[in-house]
Design a protein around this nucleic acid. Structure first.
Lengths: 229, 229
DNA sequence: TTCAATAAACTAACAGTGTATATTTACAGT
DNA sequence: ACTGTAAATATACACTGTTAGTTTATTGAA
């Protein structure tokens, strides 16, 4: 038999493939992702995957897009759990959410920010959703800028050659002011640096609950970029 | 013939293997490193590699150790190019050197801080040399601490459970004061965060020469952690 | 000078990977 | 009822890391 009856098939195989892929990442790590193993787990031949994803990279891209979306949602929810006029609180919550998300699903984090897939190069279609994952942070900084509580003195401007890329980023992140995006990138770098070292288990845990260093960093960020009344 | 005459062999095959491996990383990226391709480039059968490295991971470990050593040397040299009493200058030079090294040899950087090798887990033997790569930064912070110009107010302490690991790190980095290591880790996180995003081409270049954001960050670091006279 | 031991190469093979090709078949629409 | 399409199939290819068994050049000792 070349094709089983419909009832034996998954309702939505595309989703099933991604689910199994995430499960595999949890089990054996993002680097060991294997099309054949996914097919085996679903109970289908390996080339059957190609009916739903053109090749491995397309599948990986779909996973990355999901991960970025999840990260973005997580941060937006965290931001909105704090009153709109509490800019400092919103900034803090967004940073904490970034770290919490990474610790809750390190495979997704590694998939986005590590380079676990040999030969994989992210295609341009992830750009919008990658930008969206910065929206929460950018919006807070933008609001700080608009209400005149942003300290971005002497912040550098983007290189002329990079201006097209920067403009695209501004659109996808929804940044009103260019310097808001620049500050967001700086904050992102700091948050990401610490979190990536934590995820890689390169640094020990600090404080009573393990997030001491990160909280210290968030407070330093707030002190540096928000004018304190 | 099962074994060629001695003159046809490399003088030091272990080194030749590593050289070819680095070349491959430059050519096709760290993720696509292949034992067979290395053997092919040297003009030798694939299993012959196993006479010199027990398996792929051992070779990768050797490469990582070399990379860490190179990174450590680079930063120590940068530190020593500035007079010993100029702590701020030494800190700045060390940070700039970290970034310069990463940009000069992104493959080495990716090998250490990315996770480009499927299934590879760094063995404990890289710990000393990884610690050594922090020595330059740690020594400057230590000196700042000793001369009472370090601002580490309210810096958190390591979790009790992590204290053994922290102590080992203190030894390998040569940290005199525990808080010096903690501050060094924080600074490392910030420098690493920005640099890793740059290397991944996740953020655009700023300023006239492309290092605007990084220089801005270094100055912020200096302002935060060094008491300004 | 002869001889055995060792180290380092070899070939062949195994299990795994992503992917291409050509084939078969269940289902939907006319 | 027939046909076109979509989705599965088996088979095959070129890779990968790794193991096993074999062969030989070189070295040190008798």
């Amino acid at each position: 038999m070349a094709r089983p009856t419909k009832q034996a098939q998954h309702i939505n195989i595309r989703e099933a493939i991604k689910e199994v892929a995430w499960q595999q990442m949890v089990d054996v790590g993002a680097a060991e992702l294997s099309l054949r193993a996914i097919a085996r787990a679903i109970g289908v031949s390996a080339p059957a995957i190609y009916n739903h994803y053109a090749d491995r990279d397309v599948l990986v891209t779909a996973l990355i897009i999901d991960a970025y979306t999840s990260l973005g949602d997580y941060q937006l929810a965290a931001r909105d759990s704090v009153p709109q006029d509490d800019i400092r609180g919103r900034l803090h919550a967004t940073g904490i959410a970034y770290r919490a998300w990474a610790h809750a699903m390190p495979q997704r984090y590694q998939l986005i920010f590590g380079t676990p897939i040999p030969g994989y190069q992210a295609p341009p279609e992830v750009l919008p959703v990658a930008g969206r994952s910065l929206r929460a942070l950018v919006s807070v900084i933008d609001q700080a800028c608009a209400t005149n509580v942003l300290n971005s003195v002497a912040i550098p401007t983007v290189m002329p050659v990079e201006l097209p890329m920067f403009t695209v980023w501004q659109q996808h992140t929804g940044a009103q002011m260019p310097e808001a995006l620049t500050v967001a990138i700086m904050i992102w770098g700091r948050v990401h640096g610490l979190v990536s070292l934590e995820i890689a288990r390169a640094i020990p845990a600090f404080g009573r609950t393990g997030d001491g260093l990160f909280v210290y960093e968030m407070e330093a960020i707030e002190k540096q970029f928000l004018v304190h009344s």
